[in-house]
């Protein structure tokens, strides 16, 4: 059986259903490694992985790091504040230097959409996009889909409500591209200043009324509110945001009784969602984190597990 016939994972938009199935199935199989006593398999022994983070992130970086280590790869973390990047090194030069050091894969997070594309063009090594600006965050989209699939048995025909600042959200975009490929019904809800244009052509429904999106939903995925957007005139206050778009118990009851509550983290408790539902029995937020490691292991295995291909 062939693996992924591609060098890089830059987004979900270009992946086929067959490729996504392969990744999710592989992730499902690898998941147990992270939960058993010996969290190691020798599969990627001798492979080197660099996480290159131009934007701060603890959880995604650590998740990739653990994924690599569970597979016995050598992992190095590079963050902007502590590297030649801050000395003004261009992306192209960074890529070339990594190549010269013999790195097998680079996991990159960057504030500008399209940056991983540039890196991928200049590297023979595999590039995994860990989030590029407002563009995509494929491993997050995949772990969200894996979580839904585990709990609901599939993705087709489900109503998935994504609540919050989807305009600025790469998580929302990756979810949209992934979920619509499987025939899920995706809704975006949030303040008008935070809704993207143009996704209606994917069949996505867009509303400023969160109740409309939550009605009968199978999945509620709540996005983090970036508080600094208040200073940029996108919403007036945390209190008003929570009042009109916060997912609280009353609003969650509009969804199906067995609806999943998801959040990419980190949460602002009491802002985009109330604390009681974050800890409630519909929340699968912690499963998302576990699945995150599994998905990232799957991506590394599928990209690096074989010999020299493409």
């Amino acid at each position: 059986m062939a693996g992924l016939k591609r060098k890089d994972i830059l987004g979900l938009k270009e992946l086929s259903v067959a490729e996504i199935d392969l990744i999710l199935n592989t992730a499902d199989t690898l998941k147990d490694i992270a939960t058993r006593p010996i969290k190691k398999v020798p599969t990627l022994r001798g492979k080197s992985l660099v996480t290159l983070f131009y934007e701060n992130s603890t959880r995604t970086a650590k998740s990739f790091e653990l994924a690599g280590k569970y597979l016995s790869a050598d992992v190095i973390n590079v963050s902007v504040s502590s590297s030649s990047v801050q000395k003004g090194e261009t992306l192209k030069d960074t890529a070339r230097n990594l190549e010269a050091m013999g790195v097998d894969a680079v996991v990159m997070r960057h504030a500008m959409g399209g940056a991983p594309q540039i890196l991928a063009q200049h590297l023979h090594a595999s590039v995994i996009n860990a989030g590029d600006g407002m563009h995509e965050h494929p491993s997050q989209g995949l772990l969200d889909m894996l979580t839904i699939r585990q709990k609901k048995g599939g993705l087709s025909g489900l109503k998935v409500a994504i609540v919050g600042d989807s305009y600025h959200s790469r998580v929302a975009r990756s979810n949209i591209y992934g979920l619509t490929k499987y025939g899920a019904e995706v809704w975006l809800a949030g303040p008008a200043t935070m809704l993207p244009q143009g996704y209606e052509e994917y069949g996505v429904k867009v509303t400023t009324r969160v109740e409309e999106a939550l009605e009968g939903a199978d999945v509620v995925n709540v996005l983090r509110l970036q508080l600094e957007r208040q200073g940029r005139g996108l919403f007036p206050s945390v209190a008003e945001y929570h009042k009109f778009w916060g997912v609280n118990e009353r609003r969650l009851r509009l969804a199906k009784p067995d609806a999943l509550l998801m959040h990419p983290g980190p949460m602002n408790r009491g802002v985009e969602l109330s604390t009681s539902i974050a800890d409630g029995n519909q929340s699968v937020i912690l499963e998302q984190v576990t699945n995150g490691v599994a998905v990232r292991m799957a991506l590394l295995y599928l990209l690096l597990g074989g010999g020299e291909s493409a």
């Binding site: 693996g3 392969l22 199989t29 599928l302 597990g305 074989g306 010999g307 291909s309």
Partner: peptide, 12 residues
Amino acid sequence: LTELSSVPVIHK
């Protein structure tokens, strides 16, 4: 594994 041209499917 490194001698394979494509990555085998894994099972549980």
